[in-house]
Amino acid sequence: MEEKLLVVENLTTSFHLQNGWFSAIEDLSFTLSSNETLALVGESGCGKSVTAYSIMNLLPKPGSRIDRGSVLFHGKDLVGLPEAEMRSLRGSKLAMIFQEPMTSLNPALTVGQQIAEVLYYHNGTSKKEALKGALELLDQVKIPAAATRLNDYPHHLSGGMRQRVMIAMALAGRPEIMLADEPTTALDVTIQAQVLALLDDLKRELKMSMIFITHDMGVVARVADRVAVMYGGYLAEVAPVENLFANPVHPYTEALLKSVPRLDRDINDLNPIPGLVPSIDRMPKGCRFAERCEHKIDVCEQQMPDLTSISDAGNHSVRCWVRGAQATSNGESQA
C-alpha cells in the first residue's frame, strides 16, 4: 500500500450555538496521497470548510472544538498539537488559500512586503533575500511584470491577480499540502479557468497534494483526482472522479448531478432535489439526506449508515442503507 500523506480518521468537530454544542462534521475519515487532488464537494453548511479549518487547526476559539478523531500528517497527529508547532507547520508544510483574496490580504502592505514576510518568517531568510524570493514566487504564479507588481497594493490588483498573490504566499513555505477553500468561486469564468490551470501546473511542478473545496461540480470534474461528497457533516460518497461522475451511487450525488443545468447538452426538465439543506442545530436523526431522498427505506430515518466500500478496488465508498447494502449483498467482501 502506498504511503498516505494525510490520514483523517473519525474527525468530529462541534460548534457552540445558543442552545448547546452541535457537530458540524461528524465521523469524517479520508486519506490524501502524494500528488493527489481530493475535492471536497457539497453545499453550504455541509461541513467542507470546517474540515479544512479542523485540519489546519484554525477553528475559531472559543466556540468550536474537535471532539474526536485524528489528523495524521506523515503519521503525526495534528489534533492537539501545541500551537507553536502547528504554527510552524502552517504556511510551510500545510498552506491554505481562501475564497475572497481581498479580505485575506492586508490592504496597508504592498504585495512584495506580504510575500516577503512569509519567507522571512518561515525560512529565516534575510529581508533582501526575501524580496528576491517574493519576485520569484510572483513569476512562478505567472503574474505579468512581476517586478513592478511587488510594489503594488492589493487594491491595485484585479480579483484574479489577488488570488495569484495568495497562491504565491501559500507557496512561499514550499507546502506539501495545499488546502484551497473555494479559491475560484468569486472569480469570473475566464479568470477561474486561468487560476485552475495555474494550480494544476504548480501541483505538477512542485509535487504538491491538494484538498480542493468547492460546491461546483464542473470545477470538481476539472481539478479532482478523487472526490469526497459531503452532506450534513458526513461523507456521503468517496470515489475517483471518473467513477463518481460515470456511476454516482449515493442518492444525493446522483440527484445533485441530475439537478444542475448543463452547457454541453439539452435538458428538458431539471430534477430539483426537494426540501432544504438541514442546518446544524436541526439535523434529522438517521441519514441526514433521508427526508429529501426518493429511495429512502424505514431504517434511513432511524440510524446513520456506515461508510462502506462498494468496489473491488476499494476506492469507492458510500454511506447509504439502500445503495451501500445493495452492493454488499452483491458479494462484496467486508472481511
Binding site: V189, G218, A221, F245, V260, R262
Partner: peptide, 15 residues
C-alpha cells in the same frame, strides 16, 4: 472556460 460536470470533457478546458 465554463466548467462542465464531466471529467472526460472538462480536462480539456480552454485556457
Amino acid at each position: 472556460a465554463s466548467p462542465i460536470p464531466d471529467p472526460t470533457l472538462s480536462k480539456k478546458m480552454l485556457r
